[in-house]
Amino acid sequence: MNVFRLAGDVSHLVAIIILLLKIWRSKSCAGISGKSQVLFALVFTTRYLDLFTVFISVYNTVMKVVFLALSYATVYLIYMRFRNSYNSENDTFRVEFLLVPVIGLSFLENYAFTPLEILWTFSIFLEAVAIMPQLFMITKTGEAESITTHYLFFLGLYRALYIANWVWRYHTESFYDLIAIVSGVVQTIFFCDFFYLYFTRVLRGRGKMTLP
């Protein structure tokens, strides 16, 4: 554990809580991609299967359970409780275009050809692209509410901080995990365009982010 890793985890948690509270308080999930949230729930589910096989630390177990619970709560709010406000007509990203290559790649490129390892690899690859339906939705509608953009900012910040964590671990422990690093860099790159818009429009202008 180092400061980048801890800050990354906190940032990830903040992102998820911002989204959940936004939906809960406004009683609306307008502008939120349910597809991205289902993909994130799938990411946590397939990655944290090791909850049943190994014990790493209390911190690790608690965070995993919290992430799982919050991601399922978010999906529940979008598709059940506040489904009337869900903009399914704008959430039209074809997730099979993500799932098929990600499943294929996790079978081809993994650390061991065992179910748990393949599912772990699948979760790492899927996380890298899971935000695409949400970004696609914003591009399609041309705008995003400021709270949605704060959510995306913390979600992008989380992976960027993890990269700093991996650089730190490489130098201090001579340790690196190529699958995690390559996927993490790809994931962060997807946020770069958004980060630019966030700093130039949302933080200066306050209010909605509109695309040109």
């Binding site: 090791d50 690790n60 992430f67 650390y111 340790f175 995990d177």
Partner: peptide, 10 residues
């Protein structure tokens, strides 16, 4: 052979 050291990450 790779060990499982990133698996302690979330």
């Amino acid at each position: 052979k790779k060990d499982n050291k990133t698996k302690d990450e979330l």
